[in-house]
Amino acid sequence: MSLLNDIHKIKDGIRTKRVSSYDRTGGNQDYVTIPAGETAVLADIPGAGIIKHIWITVNTLDKMIRRNAVLRMYWDGETEPSVEAPLGDFFGQGWGEEYNFISLPLAAAPAKGKALNCYFPMPFGSGARITLQNESDEPIRSFYYYIDYEEHREMPDSMGRFHAWWNRELTEVHPDAGENEWSILAPEGKNPSDANNYLFADIEGKGHFVGVNYFVENPGPMWYGEGDDMWLVDGEDWPGSLHGTGTEDFFNSSWCPNEVYMHPYFGYARVPDKLGWMGRTHCYRFMFEEPVYFDKSLRASIEHGHDNNLTLDLSTVSYWYQVEPHKPFPAFPAKEKRQNMPEISIPDVHLWRHEWRQALGGGTRLWGNERKEKPADDTE
């Protein structure tokens, strides 16, 4: 179906409007300032309508403002936000970074990803409110934005409300098996459950899931993506009606990719340039052709390594539409809980090598692929 199919149709009862940061005096200071610790109301729109486009760019001394500023959206007078995420993560920018990102509903445009764009349609029947909380210690010296929307006479009940939820977890491994990916340490285990997976959706109500931005920081060089995606719809038991075969498979790629690739629906907007897959990778998938429908609930998760055997810093923003009311999100993590993990450096890897050398007796010509000899089997 072409995106231009309806562009020729003349419609009644719709008016295009915009809320923006333009200089009300007629001057060129077309921005607002947001002091440290304060929350700005970007839009407070009455009546019915659909937000069609949001554009934002930010100027501040805080290099982590994209994690330290929190975007929230409320529909129809609700008190619990339907959208709650760090500013950067919502627009597909992980770790407070700035980099170019291209997809159909979200984009970070030049210069070098500084222009944040959203094209998710966001219907509302009796008001829309959008806020930005500056939790930085620095003021946002200039915050430029457009919020383009349609004003409608009314909004049909069939129009779901847009939702987005940010989650983050430093994942744990099995204490007895360690980080046993690819069976390097022992035979691999089995995971007949989603109980220990990384959770990226926990929804109650009726609606459909349309996409996820997935940000993984890997402290080691091992491939992070043997984990299966698992979806339990309307309270069904494991393995559920949708069960995947690997992380890169869910993101529509294959064979442990480590290259930038951006399709309108899926891709890799950021990949590491280190040893193996060590470092930060941003994967995304938007399921506009195959949304996941649910009538009562949806629990969506993914393994962090096969059988959840890798320590990873995982964060996600999930996007869906549903009938209100929605299940309130968990308490939003404090700013201190949203900061990046320390970067694994070349000296860190050298220290690992030193410990490995000592474990093998401190030999003076150890190359790096030697293994401890297994104890002899003396049973007869």
Rank of each mutant, 00 (worst) to 15 (best):
P219V: 08
P219M: 08
P221E: 15
M222K: 11
W223L: 12
Y224T: 07
G225A: 14
G225K: 09
E226C: 02
E226P: 09
W231T: 07
G235E: 06
E236C: 09
D237W: 02
W238Q: 10
G240I: 10
S241H: 12
H243G: 07
G244S: 10
G244M: 12
T245W: 08
G246N: 14
D249W: 10
F250E: 09
F250D: 06
S253N: 09
S253D: 08
S254P: 00
S254A: 13
W255F: 07
W255I: 05
C256G: 01
C256I: 02
P257Q: 08
Y265N: 13
Y265I: 06
F266S: 07
F266A: 11
A269T: 13
A269C: 12
R270F: 05
R270C: 10
P272V: 02
D273G: 09
K274H: 01
G276F: 05
W277S: 07
G279N: 06
R280M: 07
C283Y: 12
F288N: 04
E289Q: 04
E290C: 05
E290W: 01
P291L: 00
P291T: 10
K296F: 07
S301A: 14
I302G: 02
I302H: 05
D307E: 15
N308H: 03
N308W: 05
N309M: 06
N309P: 00
N309G: 04
L310P: 11
L314K: 12
S315V: 01
V317N: 09
